[in-house]
Amino acid sequence: MESRLYQLGVFALYQLSVLLGIFLLPVALVARKVGVPLPLHRVLNRLEEAYDHATPN
């Protein structure tokens, strides 16, 4: 039960981070033009790895 709950929690966090990334895309594009990179890809990669590790193959 705990494992399934953990999987659902990680999946929800991953989906929320993708949604946040979509909403922040205009901000990221403006920041990039100014020269300030936003490291959202790091967050997505970590959550994706955590979800892949949590789900049985």
Rank of each mutant, 00 (worst) to 15 (best):
H53D: 09
D52Q: 12
K33S: 11
L38V: 09
L19S: 10
S17I: 00
A12L: 14
P37C: 06
V27P: 00
V18I: 15
F11S: 05
L8F: 14
F11D: 02
Y51E: 01
E49C: 03
L8A: 15
S3E: 15
A12F: 07
N45F: 13
S17M: 07
A31L: 15
V10T: 14
R42A: 03
L16T: 06
E49S: 11
V27S: 08
H53W: 07
L38E: 01
Q7A: 11
P39W: 03
K33V: 08
L13P: 00
R32S: 10
Y51A: 08
E2D: 15
G35P: 04
S17Q: 05
L13C: 09
Y51V: 03
V36K: 13
Y14L: 14
T55D: 09
I22M: 10
G35M: 10
L29K: 03
I22E: 04
L44Y: 01
A28Q: 14
A50E: 06
H53Y: 13
L19F: 11
L5A: 13
V30L: 15
L24A: 12
P39M: 03
F11M: 10
G35I: 02
H41F: 10
R46M: 11
E48G: 12
V34E: 02
A28S: 13
Y14S: 04
Y14R: 06
Q15G: 03
N57G: 09
R4Q: 11
F11T: 01
P56Y: 05
N57I: 03
V18R: 09
L19R: 12
Y51D: 00
L38A: 03
L47I: 05
H41T: 02
E2F: 14
V34S: 04
V27C: 10
A12C: 08
H41L: 05
L5V: 10
H53Q: 11
G35F: 07
Q7G: 00
V27L: 15
L5Y: 11
A28R: 12
L29I: 08
Y6R: 14
M1A: 15
K33E: 09
A31R: 11
I22L: 15
Q15L: 14
R4S: 08
A54E: 03
M1C: 13
R46T: 08
Q15P: 00
P26G: 06
V43K: 01
